[in-house]
Simulated scan of single mutants.
Amino acid sequence: MKIILSNLFLSLSIITTCIGQKKEEKLVRESFNSYKTSILNDKGEEAVNFVDSRTISYYNKILETTKKADSLTLNSLGILDKLMVISIRYRTSKKDILSFDGKELLIYAIKEGMVGKNSVMNTEIGSVEIDEDFAKGQFISNGKKAPFYFHFYKEDNNWKVDLTSIFPVGAMAFKKMIEDNGEEENKYLLQLLELMTGKKPVNEIWKPII
Rank of each mutant, 00 (worst) to 15 (best):
E25D: 02
L27W: 06
E30G: 10
N33C: 00
S34R: 15
Y35Q: 11
T37D: 14
T37F: 05
K43G: 03
K43D: 14
A47I: 04
F50D: 11
V51E: 06
S53H: 06
T55N: 07
I56W: 00
S57F: 10
N60W: 10
N60I: 09
K61N: 11
T65P: 00
K68M: 14
S71E: 15
L72D: 07
N75I: 07
N75S: 07
G78D: 14
L80C: 15
D81I: 02
K82F: 15
I86T: 11
S87W: 00
R89M: 07
Y90T: 05
Y90N: 12
R91G: 05
T92F: 03
D96M: 06
I97M: 07
I97R: 08
I97N: 09
F100M: 01
D101M: 06
G102C: 09
L105T: 04
A109V: 08
I110F: 08
K117Y: 03
N118L: 09
N118Q: 08
N118K: 11
S119G: 03
S119Y: 14
V120T: 09
V120Y: 09
V128M: 04
V128A: 10
E129V: 13
I130K: 03
E132K: 13
E132L: 11
N142E: 04
A146D: 08
F152G: 05
Y153A: 08
Y153C: 05
D156S: 02
D162C: 12
L163H: 05
L163Q: 08
S165D: 13
P168M: 09
